[in-house]
Simulated assay, not measured.
Amino acid sequence: MHQLDVWGFPHGSDVSDAVAHIVAELAANAITHGHVDGRDFELRLARREPNTLRVEVADARGDRLPRRQPGEGDVESGRGLCPAEALATAWGVTERQVGKAVWAELKV
């Protein structure tokens, strides 16, 4: 959030809040579904062009790709990508030499 503030998107702004939600979801997914003993996940935040922000979270598990699956009833998991997808302009997965990177972009 500090970096967003430096880029002109103050803490508590709509952009800052949207990025915080996306980072939280992608990081939680990396920890829950992408964890490999002895390996951490990697978070990147980039400003592309003058009006696009990209959040990227990489983990070491290339075999467990994320998918959006609306939760039914009172289930406690499976809905996380729905809000992230709603906040982002686009999202996807990029293969890496080890694992994968899940990314989301926002037009600002």
Score class of each variant (00 low, 15 high):
residue 57 V to C: 04
residue 47 R to L: 15
residue 62 G to T: 01
residue 49 E to F: 03
residue 64 R to E: 09
residue 54 R to L: 12
residue 44 R to V: 02
residue 41 F to A: 04
residue 13 S to Q: 09
residue 48 R to G: 12
residue 44 R to G: 09
residue 30 A to M: 11
residue 77 S to P: 00
residue 32 T to V: 13
residue 44 R to C: 08
residue 23 V to K: 10
residue 30 A to R: 11
residue 61 R to L: 04
residue 13 S to F: 10
residue 30 A to P: 01
residue 59 D to A: 03
residue 41 F to V: 03
residue 53 L to A: 01
residue 44 R to W: 10
residue 69 Q to E: 13
residue 64 R to G: 00
residue 55 V to R: 04
residue 59 D to V: 02
residue 13 S to L: 09
residue 54 R to W: 03
residue 79 R to K: 03
residue 49 E to P: 05
residue 65 L to W: 00
residue 12 G to C: 03
residue 24 A to E: 08
residue 26 L to Q: 07
residue 78 G to L: 01
residue 58 A to R: 11
residue 55 V to N: 05
residue 15 V to M: 11
residue 28 A to Y: 09
residue 31 I to Y: 08
residue 27 A to L: 01
residue 25 E to T: 14
residue 10 P to I: 08
residue 42 E to L: 13
residue 23 V to Y: 00
residue 24 A to M: 12
residue 55 V to C: 09
residue 16 S to I: 05
residue 70 P to V: 12
residue 58 A to L: 05
residue 15 V to K: 06
residue 65 L to I: 01
residue 59 D to K: 06
residue 41 F to P: 04
residue 75 V to L: 10
residue 46 A to L: 13
residue 19 V to W: 06
residue 79 R to Y: 10
residue 15 V to G: 03
residue 49 E to T: 10
residue 65 L to S: 02
residue 32 T to I: 06
residue 49 E to R: 14
residue 21 H to A: 14
residue 33 H to S: 02
